[in-house]
Computed example of a mutant assay.
Amino acid sequence: MKKNNVLFLLVWVLCSSFTLHKFYMAIYQVNHNVAKKRLEITARIFVDDLNSALDKKYKTKHFLGTDKQSSTDTEDLKKYLLDQLKITVNHQGKPITFKSSELDGNVLVCYLNCADVAKVTQIEVSNTILTEVFDEQENMMHFQFNGGKQTLVLDAEKTKGMLK
């Protein structure tokens, strides 16, 4: 009997060491386009995580990135992103516009922008995308403005950041 317990314990340890740990990260690139006077935002988010977040928020099943994707799925995505992502430039809140999205493997690439941004001295951002669903979610935000590059990593505990 003891031999069976030891064997079970050994098999359990080996199996558990090979299980995959889900990776919760989204990558955002925010560029200041001086010529067009706007911030251009590209968000790369795992599509299955987005579907889970939309399912939870809107209490219905979503099918982003599949042949079952509906216009309601797209509208819910747009509302969700615009509700969860806020940008303030030079102490002025800037409305974000959802432009489009496309599937790249298992990642949904979303294109957004903020118009009427001629000059940037300070950017404040609040990003709660997926943090209400996944405690381990990290939103890595890369910013390019005034000839420099800076990065913020936001998560469920730290959802806001500021750059100068």
Rank of each mutant, 00 (worst) to 15 (best):
E75S: 14
S52K: 11
L39E: 03
K164F: 07
L50Q: 11
D76K: 10
E157G: 05
Y80K: 09
K22L: 11
T151Q: 15
L9F: 04
D55I: 03
L112S: 05
S101T: 06
V89A: 03
F8I: 04
W12T: 12
Q144F: 04
F145D: 01
L77P: 00
K3L: 08
V117P: 01
F46P: 10
E132Q: 14
F145W: 06
Q122T: 14
S70G: 07
F18S: 09
L81W: 08
S100N: 10
K68A: 12
G161A: 03
K61M: 15
V34Q: 13
K160T: 05
K68S: 13
F46Y: 15
I96S: 02
G105D: 14
K2A: 07
N51C: 11
R44M: 13
G147Q: 05
Q69S: 08
T151I: 13
L152Y: 06
K160W: 01
F143L: 02
K119N: 15
Y80I: 07
K36G: 01
S126A: 14
E138F: 08
V120W: 04
Q69N: 03
K37Y: 00
D55H: 13
Q144S: 11
K99H: 04
P95D: 08
D104M: 14
Q92L: 07
Q29M: 14
L10A: 09
D104C: 11
T121Y: 11
K99M: 05
Y111I: 02
N113I: 00
Y111D: 03
H142V: 08
Q29D: 15
D83L: 06
W12P: 00
Y111T: 03
S100H: 05
R38K: 13
K94Y: 03
A35E: 13
L54N: 07
E40H: 02
L50R: 06
Q144D: 03
Q92N: 04
V107Y: 14
K22A: 14
E102F: 08
Q150F: 09
E132T: 06
S52L: 06
D83P: 00
K158C: 01
N5V: 00
F63A: 10
I45F: 09
A26C: 15
K149T: 12
K94P: 00
D104R: 13
I45L: 12
L39D: 04
S71W: 11
F63I: 01
I129H: 00
C110T: 15
F23H: 15
I41M: 04
Y58K: 09
T74L: 12
L163K: 07
A35Y: 07
E124A: 14
N146A: 12
H142Q: 13
A118Y: 03
I27E: 13
W12E: 06
D48Q: 10
G147E: 05
Q69Y: 02
G161H: 05
Q29K: 15
F98L: 01
T159H: 02
E157L: 05
Y58D: 11
H21V: 15
V117L: 02
Q122S: 15
L130H: 06
L130Q: 13
N90H: 06
N106V: 12
C110A: 14
L77V: 02
N106C: 07
R44L: 11
F18C: 12
A118C: 03
N90G: 04
S71P: 01
L108V: 10
T42M: 13
L9Q: 07
A156T: 02
K57S: 09
A43Q: 10
Q144L: 02
Y58L: 10
L82S: 06
N106H: 14
Y58C: 10
